[in-house]
């Protein structure tokens, strides 16, 4: 334990407004703290460059999963465990359930939050690819009001986001899929549980009249930020399902290798990440074709 406990201040607001007031009054001075599963690791290692923490854990306003006929809205403090066991999410947004399932293990899933996973800004987080695939939006709130930001625009660089120092994430909204759709999630981690992703792919596709009407591909651990593979998406989107043959898939794999910007680190290599991303895309497209042809 190398973190400096005596030098730390933790403030626990009792309302969301109370929290926002503090963030507004001393911009950038307070680090929001939710389940602690990321921050406490850095704190214990003595490498967390903050000493003032705003404890959000007790703010029930930031909890709860709400559904409408069009969307599912998850409170910022929704835990992985809550996502894992939510029947509607399991039925309609299975990628979210899978990404929650593969984040840490039970003890982490009981504490880690969806907003924390986003705000922490790690490119290796496992819910972001699913959120990208589902076209999620993030609600940011400050004393001045709230705004919805498409999640794909949220991260601006390694551990950088569009959030202002006085803002908090309050909710994450995902649109409920319609029509004939296909979901794919695969994490290639360092091991089967308690693992950090080396490559993570999540995709959502919708077919209409024999064509891929919608296709979004979210990726983790292959760039400084969680990212959508836009060139690859464009290639696939609008294609006739009949034409998604081996040759097409080979082309898509090449496109994906250009889309991503992986690096070498202590967990894997850039060349591995590039090749495996492409191979898993191949698996994804094959399964997608099979699924849509079956319908």
């Amino acid at each position: 334990m190398r973190g400096q406990v005596p030098g730390c201040t933790v403030h626990t607001p009792t309302t969301l407004i109370g929290a926002l007031e503090i963030l507004f009054a001393e911009k950038g001075a307070w680090r929001p703290l939710a389940g602690g599963t990321d921050l406490m690791v850095l704190f214990a290692a003595g490498v967390l460059p903050f000493s003032r923490f705003l404890n959000l854990w007790g703010l029930d306003e930031l909890r709860g999963i709400e559904t409408t006929s069009d969307s599912v809205s998850l409170g910022a403090l929704t835990t992985y465990a809550e996502i894992r066991t939510h029947p509607l999410i399991a039925a309609e947004l299975p990628n979210l359930v899978q990404s929650a399932w593969v984040t840490g293990a039970m003890a982490i899933q009981n504490r880690g939050t969806l907003a924390g996973n986003i705000a922490n800004g790690s490119p290796a987080a496992d819910t972001p690819p699913s959120l990208l695939a589902y076209g999620a939006e993030v609600q940011l709130q400050s004393l001045a009001g709230s705004r919805w930001v498409p999640y794909e625009n949220f991260h601006t660089g390694y551990k950088q986001t569009v959030m202002l120092p006085e803002e908090l994430i309050t909710r994450i909204r995902v649109w409920r899929p319609k029509g004939d759709n296909f979901h794919f999630f695969r994490k290639v981690g360092t091991r089967k549980a308690q693992a950090i992703s080396k490559v993570c792919l999540a995709a959502y596709a919708r077919a209409e009249e024999g064509r891929v009407a919608e296709f979004r591909l979210g990726m983790g651990s292959v760039a400084p930020v969680p990212m959508r593979a836009l060139t690859t998406e464009m290639l696939v989107q609008g294609q006739a399902i009949e034409e998604l043959d081996g040759q097409f898939i080979a082309g898509a794999k090449l496109a994906l290798m250009e889309d991503i910007r992986p690096i070498d680190d202590i967990r894997s290599t850039a060349s591995y990440r590039r090749k495996v991303s492409a191979n898993v895309l191949g698996q994804l497209l094959e399964e997608m074709v099979e699924r849509f042809k079956r319908a």
Binding site: T190, R191, I196, I266
Partner: peptide
Amino acid sequence: SEQVVWSKGRMANGQMTNYIMATSMD
């Protein structure tokens, strides 16, 4: 899986999250 990553004579992955021993799932 259990790779010690060396950097200038020092283990670079000296954390349980980065040195890969098996979990019950593996």
